[in-house]
Design a protein around this nucleic acid. Structure first.
Lengths: 246, 246
DNA sequence: GTCTATATCATGATAGAC
DNA sequence: GTCTATCATGATATAGAC
């Protein structure tokens, strides 16, 4: 057996986890950095992750990250854009397809909610799209006080939120528009929290669910979330004393 | 006019913002540090805030913070415990009072939900309890990957969540317990998101609400949130093919 | 209890050889 | 495009005078 190469141990181990069989199947440097950053931002947050950790896990040189992305901020942007571009265009595609099938008929609220939130949750099962890792990262993004991240999200979500809001207006003509906006926010919150999955916090709050059941419970998240969201979306309106007509 | 004292400019300005009239009304050093940390953690996050910023804003010396709290981690813990101790004991008090009034009758779900989430939102209107600032900090805490914070929250929430979960079991005997747990999570998420209030993100998502209306809309958050939460809590159960009886 | 001064270390970024 | 070496900065924490 040849000796292990003289790389520092950390580098070698990390490098090998990317090439279990064929070295030529390694993703390129740029992609390896994005993958490592996605995973580490999810686990330790943006401020809690250093460029050295990222490049160490990716098995590339520190300077390579700055060569490819220019700065840590720009890397964060690239991490989110890679996934959100797919997610939001897929959401729009599904919604448009539903509308085309329905012809002049208005869509059902459950269809719209599924096109938005179901598309998101199903993305979490696809490894090539970031899977659970990106889902958790996205679920936590609102809690992150990073300004760059918020303006990025605002820009990436602008079109898709407008489209889905308008679809809900049409599907629920009897509900005041301002109430639909509020409830869309509440739905975003319930979903973000559900996918943010923090082990230590969950350990204390997932009481009474036997460990063997956990995996099965996970795959039932979508139907449970859907029924909760739709119940909230169509709940009787709060009794609000109007000062101006709606 | 006497010359300004020879303090560095930053210190003097920060100091004066605490004593508009009577110097003897200044909170003590410990409290000033807690207040400054609470505000800065809310605005820039834990990792994004330095001890120098905190002590600078509090108008105290850097070494004083370490003298009083020992470390930055311990300061974070103190910031949360100060508010959560009040909040969760108040929640338990309100729930117990309701149960005593109801005698043998089960509580209505709306009472339980209000005791938990209404107590939280009403806390946000009381400046002496941290007001909006602490509410936003708490709303973002799940997105924060800090391990210390999560174990702290898990410990602080353990008792109160168990009590409210059990109260919901009694109030909704026809709903399987596992479904109640899921829906309690969804309610936590919708509420956390609603109070996390991030200006730049809200700017893009609070579409179509005229700026003059925003303040009035804010005070209507509670009834709107309550009707959404109750709608979700009591929604028809998802159609899940059971493999084991509940 | 509060201050000054400082020890010690990790960070993001870059210069310049190859 | 990738490396080594390094710079400049800012972080937490503490020693020790008062």
């Amino acid at each position: 057996m040849p000796q292990a190469p003289e790389h520092p141990l950390g580098f070698k181990q990390t490098f090998e986890q990317y090439i279990p069989m064929k070295p030529e199947a390694l993703p390129d440097t740029r992609t390896r950095i994005l993958d490592a950053a996605e995973r580490l931002f999810t686990e330790h947050g943006f401020e809690g992750t250093s460029m050295r950790q990222i490049t160490g896990e990716a098995g590339v040189n520190l300077a390579a990250a700055n060569y490819h992305f220019g700065s840590k901020d720009a890397l964060l942007e690239a991490v989110f854009k890679r996934r959100l571009a797919w997610l939001n265009s897929e959401r729009l595609r599904v919604l448009s397809e539903m509308e085309a099938e329905a012809g002049q008929q208005p869509l059902k609220p459950s269809q719209i909610v599924d096109a938005f939130f179901g598309t998101l949750l199903r993305m979490g099962t696809r490894q090539e799209l970031g899977g659970e890792t990106f889902l958790r990262l996205l679920g936590r993004s609102r809690g992150n006080p990073n300004n760059l991240l918020h303006s990025l999200l605002a820009a990436e979500y602008d079109e898709v939120l407008t489209r889905f809001r308008d679809a809900l207006y049409l599907a629920l003509p009897e509900v005041p528009k301002v109430e639909i906006i509020w409830r869309l926010h509440f739905m975003l919150g319930a979903t973000a929290y559900a996918i943010a999955g923090t082990d230590s916090l969950d350990a204390a709050t997932d009481w009474q669910i036997p460990p063997g059941e956990q995996a099965r419970q996970e795959e039932l998240l979508l139907p449970r979330l859907m029924s909760f969201l739709l119940g909230g979306l169509r709940a009787p309106l709060a009794d609000i004393r109007p000062e101006a007509p709606h």
